[in-house]
């Protein structure tokens, strides 16, 4: 068991298996952006606070800046590009779009992933619960209200579907 500065990893990213040699110190988002060209995940702080780097690993949202690429070995990673192309975020994207729940767009990929986790829950959240859940994603442009409106609208739509 020899500690190494460089390692081979095999990871499924957006549905495709990727094999690469990576530096141990490179975090997951730098790997996704710099090695694989998935620039939809953004870096706003690299200390885990702003949420711009939020991606999905093995189905869970994580801070991509607080995970090493080597830790993603054997994992399934989904970035905004993959999640968008698959259509899984379509309702949220549509509501965000119609309500102008984004301006510069830098926080948006992370915000969508965080919102998607909330929307997937069984019971529809209250506005306050939406705000609490999204409080790990910094947005400087919107003031958050339109984002909360958009998430609320999607949750409402879903619960009607469930009730029907």
């Amino acid at each position: 068991m020899e500690p190494l500065e460089f390692m081979d990893i095999s990871v499924v990213v957006n549905g495709t298996r990727i094999t690469r040699r990576v530096a141990a110190r490179q975090h997951l988002v730098d790997f996704l952006r710099d090695e694989l060209g998935f620039t939809g995940s953004h870096l706003g702080c690299e200390h885990g606070v702003c949420g711009a780097c939020t991606v999905r690993v093995n189905g869970e949202i994580v801070r991509g800046c607080l995970m090493l690429a080597v830790q993603a070995d054997g994992a399934v990673v989904e970035t905004i590009e993959g999640a968008s192309d698959s259509g899984g975020l379509a309702e949220l994207q549509r509501e965000f779009h119609e309500r102008n729940a984004l301006q510069c767009g830098f926080c948006t990929p992370g915000m969508l992933f965080s919102a998607a986790e909330l929307v997937a829950r069984e019971s529809p959240p209250t506005r306050e619960e939406i705000r609490l859940h999204l409080s790990g994603n910094y947005c400087r442009c919107t003031g958050y209200q339109s984002i909360v409106d958009a998430v609320e609208a999607v949750c409402r739509g879903r619960s009607w579907e469930k009730a029907a």
Partner: peptide, 14 residues
Amino acid sequence: AVRLLAGRGRYVDD
């Protein structure tokens, strides 16, 4: 805004 929602914006670092 559509491309920004899809993670296909193009900022300087991209």
